[in-house]
């Protein structure tokens, strides 16, 4: 595999055609979704491919920052969309995800692990932001549900003279676990159940498997750091919204 072109993509479509015919024959009603998925993936990936080509050619810091900002904004929207009742959820997710991914990225750059080049940094940013988004989504949702569903438990602890931090501890811990479960699972099964994307890509591109594995390890640690920072921030920012300065429980409701 050297130069890949649209012709190769057309050839790979023959696989889809087989799947299409088979599913149709056995009356599995997925043809509509399949066609939609094929077109959608094509448009999105080709667009991204062209955009990245341009971005890599320009290779300017401001452009990298802009791309990161857009990714963070889209990710934060996705993370906050389910907790409609929590006012300011977008900013909460946005600032947490930004902290988690920017801080991690800054450390990677400062230690010289990665060069500040668009072609290297942008795929990293993609992984950082999507993992932070995933973590933020689950943490916010779980904490919001936990606290609103357990008002009596929280207030009982407050009434016994506990502060808001103690009264919410159990629920913060559960929310943190919910936010980090996918990165933990990833680290548990990595290399055994599946080779992760970055590593697969490197091996396909002809790199030495050990080198690919070490690279993947660095990525894994980087994601763990970003996810942890994001989760901690989300918890801190969210839980405070549920309490007044006098340790009174007052769930935030968007009116």
């Amino acid at each position: 595999m050297t130069e890949i072109g649209f012709v190769d993509v057309a050839i790979s479509l023959s696989l889809v055609a087989v799947a299409f015919v088979v599913s149709r024959f056995w009356k599995v009603p997925v043809q509509k979704e399949m066609s939609l998925g094929v077109v959608r993936a094509f448009v999105q990936l080709v667009a991204v491919g062209y955009a990245l080509e341009k971005i890599f050619a320009i290779d300017q810091i401001w452009l990298i920052a802009l791309v990161m900002l857009v990714m963070l904004a889209v990710g934060a929207r996705e993370a906050s969309v389910r907790t409609k009742k929590l006012s300011g959820a977008f900013w909460l997710a946005f600032s947490s995800m930004t902290t988690g991914s920017v801080l991690t990225l800054a450390i990677m750059l400062a230690t010289g692990l990665f060069e500040l080049k668009a072609v290297i940094i942008i795929p990293l940013i993609g992984m950082l932001v999507s993992n932070s988004m995933n973590a933020a989504t689950h943490t916010i949702n779980r904490l919001y549900e936990n606290l609103t569903d357990n008002r009596l438990a929280v207030e009982t602890a407050l009434a016994l003279g506990k502060n808001w931090r103690e009264a919410s501890q159990r629920f913060r811990r559960q929310a943190a676990t919910a936010g980090m479960v996918s990165i933990f699972n990833f680290m548990k099964t990595v290399g055994i159940v599946a080779l992760p994307g970055a590593m697969t890509g490197m091996i396909l591109a002809g790199k030495d498997p050990l080198e690919a594995a070490l690279f993947q390890l660095i990525i894994g640690y980087m994601l763990l750091s970003a996810v942890t920072l994001t989760v901690v921030m989300v918890l801190e920012l969210t839980v405070r919204r549920f309490f007044t300065p006098h340790d009174q429980f007052r769930p935030p409701v968007r009116l």
């Binding site: 407050l158 009434a159 016994l160 003279g161 506990k162 502060n163 006098h246 340790d247 009174q248």
Partner: peptide, 11 residues
């Protein structure tokens, strides 16, 4: 403090 108060005034 609310904590101290609530230990004096149980509910």
């Amino acid at each position: 403090s609310p904590q101290e108060l609530r230990r004096h005034i149980g509910y």
